[in-house]
Amino acid sequence: MSDRLLTRRALLRAGMTAASASLLGGCKVLDGLSAPDNTIRRFMERANDLTMAMQRGVLNRDALATEYSAADIRQPQRPNGVTNPQDDAYLALKSTDFADYRLEVGGMVHQPLSLSLAQMRTMPVRRQITRHDCVEGWSCIADWTGVPLAYVLSVAGVRSEARYVLFHCFDTIERSLSGTVRYYETIDLVDARHPQTILAWGMNGAALPVPNGAPLRVRVERQLGYKMAKYIRAIELVDDFSAVGRGRGGYWEDRGYEWYAGI
């Protein structure tokens, strides 16, 4: 019996020593992958192109995200990122309950627009109860009301060379020595014209609250939360986003996250 115990103990000890040694060695060595220009990282990032190609090419690219029932709304929508912008332009608009707010639609369009909230509320309405998935891992179900982005784009008339919708936001998300960084995001026209992609001005039956992006945010229901820009100031149709920010198509993308966030 005693030799058994010894065997088992020795085995455990040897195993744990080997495992922890390899892990310690392994992990520190791999920290180089955090650098954005690391060659191996750049190679690994291309797996995301495969994910996007599969989701767009093999799966149904027009599929609708699951919509839930009112009974599934069990809590307020959890806000994340910036929840109370302190930018002067934003605070001025907020002080009058966004009565003077105008959404500017420009860039590669035939007819630039400047839309008030009242005007957008007279446009076609879509209401959907959907699940918001954060890149951190959590999910939350809420009821969203807004105008389909496809409708706004059709009014503005997208020029044929446009490929992406660029969202300019009011909120400063980062202050550093090199200046302030405001949130921005891009989506392509496939997602922009998806029927569930809406410019939401309402949430859970009321006006969109400030922590969730008042007065206007976008819902991109088949991607993660960071794609769904809040506090939208302007929409710009572009054919390329390499000159915006650090050139990766969004605030979080510039910090290492994938541009296509369908996974």
Partner: peptide, 20 residues
Amino acid sequence: QWATIPSGVDLATGRVIHFF
């Protein structure tokens, strides 16, 4: 730290490695 790649807090890189 010894149980994660990368060792520091880096969700973005963790996702790149995981999906690859």
